[in-house]
Design a binder for these strands. Structure first.
Lengths: 156, 156
DNA sequence: GGTTGACAGTCAATATAGTTGACTGTCAAC
DNA sequence: GTTGACAGTCAACTATATTGACTGTCAACC
């Protein structure tokens, strides 16, 4: 299975590929949400809603800070706008009254479904192109990069 | 080679992995640049400088628009600040006087080298973890995603 | 049982990027 | 020559993030 000539992407550095790959998902999700009328979700809101939809349910605000790597003020603001726009509720945690817990509203769950469907469409398309093993390889490579990032952060 | 238990990343959606993987490169490059005194490069500037460094030399402003997927005004502004801060020069193209051509300055090339070294460090680390074939698989998967994005854009 | 330090989040001010809309100058094609 | 498409700029605005200073809550210890 020798390559006759090198593939178009061989000479593109990984971060550039990552950037564009992410763009594929982002614009598919954004497009689907826009069409469905959910056109007021800020960039990072996609990850909040997406994460909340699969995640273990309710989540304290502080986790967003970790996860999104933004300041807690930015996280607070982000949640604020998502609450204002009807995607989330924000309530005090009865156990630890310092904490806030955010939960998807009906509208939030709807949006998450639309977004998930768009993501699935890309995933399916991707699967059709590179198959099971390709998909596993991709995820494994990405996971390795995530681990490198974790390690770097610890040693910093 | 059966998996005894599923890997930690199995249940994470691809876009989230992409986000974090990109973060690994971004913070490594950012950190290296900061240390070397190049601490005034805006986010997208990394791609401009990086791209210019490998690319076929000088590049018209319009390519940035395509490449970065930002408005031409934003591209102009970005180049502006990079020129102001000494990383780029911006000159009129003598052939087509509508066009501007941007070029790395000495400082720009230095920064690109630092950034490239940081990227290489990650690449090497990655290679140590997943090997040649893993790397090829990763790039192939990412390239497939990029192609899906292209296709989507055409049909839109 | 009251102080102390760490933690979770807010408020206010500001900075940074990006957007849109209207415009100028240049080219190419007829 | 006009006409239309293209490359980029100017100006005003919006969205999103940051920093620094603060409040309230918890836990741990004397």
């Amino acid at each position: 299975m020798a390559r006759e000539q090198s593939a178009w992407y061989e000479d593109i550095v990984v971060p550039a590929l990552l950037r564009h790959a992410r763009g594929t998902y982002a614009s598919a999700m954004r497009g689907a949400l826009d069409e469905a009328g959910y056109d007021d979700i800020p960039e990072n809101g996609l990850y909040v809603i997406g994460g909340l939809a699969m995640g273990a349910g309710d989540v304290p605000l502080g986790r967003l800070v970790q996860e999104l790597r933004i300041s807690k003020q930015a996280a607070g603001q982000l949640v604020d706008t998502l609450v204002t726009r009807g995607y989330l509720t924000r309530e005090g945690d009865p156990v630890d009254r310092r904490k806030l817990v955010i939960t998807l509203t009906e509208r939030g769950r709807d949006a998450a479904a639309v977004q998930g469907a768009a993501r699935d469409r890309i995933d399916t398309d991707l699967h059709a192109r590179i198959g099971d093993s390709g998909l596993r390889g991709l995820k494994r490579g990405l996971a390795a990069l995530v681990e490198i990032g974790r390690k770097d952060r610890e040693s910093a």
